[in-house]
């Protein structure tokens, strides 16, 4: 161990961490505003969550307990790699249990279990600019944010309804933060948007390739954009989780065989395991038990 070259704590050098912390503080001070920062090269490709990793590296302390999820799961390649990365470069405690974690780095999901005070959720963001798809000029989108010209966001939702009869945007659904900045909540499903509103936890967003950090401080209003006659709605699932029987949670479709067999299970694996540990049984498990 000692004869190997050692990394600085949490991989990044201290000056870089300071720079990122300054950006984070600014982002917290202006909820929803995208703060540019000098994103570093990380030992993983863009798209693997380099923005989230840099934010996590900058806020991580030796006493923190880290949880990393990808699509709600703790055991996917991306989650496992990032978790291993921080174990190696910071030697911090890791967990898969939501309530035990102090920092949760996520791609795509907000855990089902309500986050509490003192917890920090770090999002990996691919494209931070919600206006980008309709307005390609960065100079123009910055001006639009500065002048609060957000009509274009509704043009996008209008197009959705015109094409599909309802707002078909199901992820990266735009929100307005504290009545001021319109923000892209990263590619989380809109199912999770209400969890952002008045959350007790601190939410930080890092986009490595796009070099932007933004934040939603605790107890901040986060309102999903909508029309009066087409109000914001989250996804609803017909059946409960096949494994733990949970309702009102976000489900993933899992194909079971090549004859059309499939099941819907919790996307949040920790939540599912925890329920089962407490004796909740979904219909599929009940079936297996019967056999």
């Amino acid at each position: 161990m000692t004869d190997l070259a050692t990394y600085n704590f949490a991989y990044l050098d201290e000056q870089t961490k300071r720079m990122i912390r300054r950006a984070i503080l600014k982002a917290i001070a202006i909820p929803g505003y995208q703060v540019p920062f000098a994103s570093r090269e990380m030992p993983m490709p863009y798209g693997w969550g380099t923005g989230g990793v840099q934010v996590t590296a900058a806020i991580l302390g030796p006493d923190d307990v880290l949880k990393v999820i990808d699509q709600g799961a703790d055991d996917t390649t991306n989650a496992v790699s990032i978790r291993a990365f921080f174990q190696k470069v910071a030697n911090v405690a890791v967990t898969t249990k939501t309530k035990d974690a102090t920092i949760i780095q996520t791609r795509h999901r907000i855990p089902e279990e309500k986050l509490g005070e003192g917890q920090t959720l770090v999002y990996q963001v691919p494209i931070p600019e919600p206006l980008r798809f309709l307005e390609p000029r960065e100079t123009e989108t910055r001006k639009m944010h500065a002048l609060e010209e957000y009509g274009l966001m509704h043009v996008k939702l209008y197009e959705d309804i015109a094409r599909n009869g309802h707002i078909a945007t199901t992820y990266a659904y735009p929100v307005k933060v504290e009545g001021r900045y319109v923000m892209d909540p990263s590619p989380t499903p809109k199912f999770d948007n209400p969890k952002m509103h008045m959350s007790d936890a601190l939410q930080l967003f890092g986009a490595g390739r796009e070099k932007r950090i933004y934040a939603v401080p605790p107890h901040t209003q986060v309102v999903s954009l909508d029309f009066e006659d087409h109000p914001f709605e989250i996804q609803h699932f017909d059946k409960p989780c096949a494994l733990c029987g949970a309702e009102q949670v976000y489900l993933d479709e899992v194909v079971l065989d090549d004859r059309g067999g499939r099941m819907f299970v919790c996307s949040d694996t920790d939540h599912c395991e925890d329920r089962r540990a407490h004796g909740h049984v979904g219909h599929l498990l009940a079936q297996e038990a019967a056999e």
């Binding site: 009509g151 197009e159 015109a162």
Partner: peptide, 20 residues
């Protein structure tokens, strides 16, 4: 974007929030 949204954009920009 569609013709309808092209015409509607100014309305949405001034705060019209009723799709219909």
């Amino acid at each position: 974007v569609s013709a309808g949204a092209n015409v509607g954009e100014r309305l949405m920009a001034v705060g019209d929030r009723h799709y219909g």
